[in-house]
């Protein structure tokens, strides 16, 4: 817990520096988070151009409005949340899609799978089982095990209370293991 709060503090400090016009803090924040935001965003809208545009938009506007920025304490979830709502907006514009339908499975990333032939067999099962989860369950698995965000941040991003985030994660891993067991039997 202590280690995480150090990281949170670092982000909050960078935020304050950005508000004062420090371009180096801005660059640090971008390089620290951009790739993570890309990865997260790509699962919401599987379109490289749209996601890169959205992330860059977010950061460009951050710098342009730096003087009017509010004091954000939890910078990381704030940025995840921003990119999430931006991409959901573009989704709604394009497909009039339901928010819960928005978190993509892994099955569609054939090219990525081909590059990692050695894991092919196991991944195929895991892939199938991941795709059987609900979009929200997939999303929390991504945020938890790939992005390594803590429950507090996830709850913040997904607009839920802490315990609901833990419960969602529990349901996701339970569903995943049940599915995997069926495959091995």
């Amino acid at each position: 817990m202590e280690l995480l709060s150090v990281e949170t503090d670092k982000f909050a400090q960078a935020w304050q520096q950005i508000k004062k016009g420090d371009i180096h803090s801005y660059e640090w924040l971008f390089k620290k988070l951009a790739s993570k935001l890309y990865s997260y965003g790509y699962r919401i809208v599987p379109d490289r151009v749209v996601v890169e545009d959205a992330v860059q938009d977010l950061f460009v506007q951050l710098w342009e409005n730096r003087e009017q920025l509010s004091d954000v304490k939890l910078v990381k979830p704030y940025l995840y949340k921003s990119i999430r709502s931006r991409l959901l907006r573009t989704l709604n514009h394009r497909y009039a899609s339901d928010e819960s339908m928005s978190f993509m499975g892994i099955a569609s990333y054939e090219e990525a799978v081909i590059e990692h032939e050695s894991h092919h067999q196991m991944n195929a099962q895991l892939k199938q089982c991941l795709n059987k989860l609900t979009p929200r369950q997939r999303e929390i698995i991504h945020l938890k095990f790939y992005q390594q965000l803590d429950y507090e941040d996830i709850a913040n991003i997904l607009n839920m209370v802490y315990q609901a985030a833990v419960n969602l994660c529990f349901r996701a891993v339970t569903g995943l293991r049940q599915c995997l067991k069926k495959h091995t039997d």
Binding site: Y42, H116, L130, Y146
Partner: peptide, 12 residues
């Protein structure tokens, strides 16, 4: 395995 699967899907 989850992390590997997620990494495949990740676009960096």
């Amino acid at each position: 395995q989850l992390r590997q699967a997620e990494s495949y899907a990740a676009v960096v």
